[in-house]
């Protein structure tokens, strides 16, 4: 065939290659990411690298040094059983991290699955969304407490309870994205190509929901750390003697006036942890939204912070 077409007027010039690259590039350059990453490294050094060097067992009880204030032997002091608070706080950090990660990942997977089904298939939409409405009608912390109370308080059960509490939000979010993307022209184009529903859903709709999911997962991570601490503080979370930031606080509240270090150190740890995760969440969100300016960032963060700390 003899084609003398005006050959695609612009030549192929090298350019910022693709969206993924641009995204990670922008993500890594966000101030929120840099602050978050710095804090995260400090936290990890403090709570994971240093403890083995100091070498205290978070479980070993020494009644002779009950409730001793911070010193060089016990950096954060000791608790009411004479256990080293530094290693217990760090143990709590690890437990919180584990819970946060498991809850974020599980509820992301489950929520995406449910949301995708509900958004794509009208028939299951009503059923799934009514169940989600039902779950969301309860205050999260109350529902989580009830679940842990009925399942028994253990690490796994706390994770299960938190997943049940936090999944509906993700499902709802993904559903709304799927509903919107489903109507896009390129989906109709795929359908006109003869693509199956499964292919359209998996290859064309879900990848386009990834950005909102990523942001939400970061906030869920922070949320579950807070809720777990609250649960443990109320005595419905991770059961002692396993350290958790919440149950250290619970033990500390009785002796708060005489030995405030039992409350101060775990609280600081909790605050910094949640801050780090929120910084990462903000960085993802900003990197995905090229229009996000600095000014709007501070405004939005303020409301996020207030929201994070007040809903627990």
């Amino acid at each position: 065939m003899t084609l003398k077409l005006n050959p695609a007027s612009t030549p192929v010039e090298p350019r910022a290659q693709n969206r993924q690259l641009t995204f990670s590039y922008r993500f890594l350059r966000r101030p929120a990411f840099r602050v978050g990453a710095t804090l995260a490294v400090l936290l990890l050094v403090l709570a994971v690298v240093i403890p083995p060097i100091v070498g205290y067992d978070p479980y070993s009880v020494d009644p002779s040094v009950r409730l001793s204030p911070p010193s060089f032997t016990h950096l954060y002091g000791t608790d009411d059983f004479g256990r080293d608070l530094f290693s217990r706080t760090n143990g709590g950090f690890q437990v919180s991290l584990m819970i946060g990660a498991s809850v974020a990942i599980s509820s992301a997977i489950l929520g995406t699955l449910l949301g995708a089904l509900a958004g794509y298939y009208r028939a299951v939409d009503a059923i799934i969304m009514r169940i989600c409405d039902g779950l969301m009608a309860f205050p999260g912390i109350l529902l989580a407490m009830a679940l842990v109370a009925s399942l028994g308080s253990s690490l796994v059960n706390v994770i299960i309870a938190l997943v049940i509490v936090l999944t509906p939000g993700i499902a709802r979010l993904i559903r709304s994205r799927v509903l919107a993307i489903k109507e896009e022209l390129f989906i109709e184009a795929m359908r006109s190509q003869g693509a199956s529903s499964l292919r359209i859903l998996l290859r064309h709709i879900l990848p386009n929901t990834l950005n909102v999911l990523l942001v939400q997962v970061a906030y869920i991570f922070a949320d579950s750390i807070m809720v777990e601490a609250a649960l443990s503080f109320l005595g419905a979370g991770v059961a002692p003697p396993t350290p958790s930031l919440g149950n250290i606080l619970y033990d500390g509240k009785q002796v708060f006036l005489t030995s405030p270090w039992m409350v101060i150190f775990p609280s600081l740890m909790l605050i910094v942890m949640v801050m780090v995760v929120n910084f990462f969440g903000d960085a993802v969100r900003e990197a995905l939204d090229p229009k996000a300016s600095r000014r709007r960032w501070t405004q939005r963060s303020k409301s996020v912070w207030l929201g994070r700390f007040s809903n627990v």
Binding site: F186, E188, N208
Partner: peptide, 16 residues
């Protein structure tokens, strides 16, 4: 039978 749409920007998946 195939189709070519009016708006070329939105008839292709932006992530592919």
């Amino acid at each position: 039978m195939q189709m070519v749409f009016q708006d070329p920007y939105s008839s292709l998946n932006p992530r592919v």
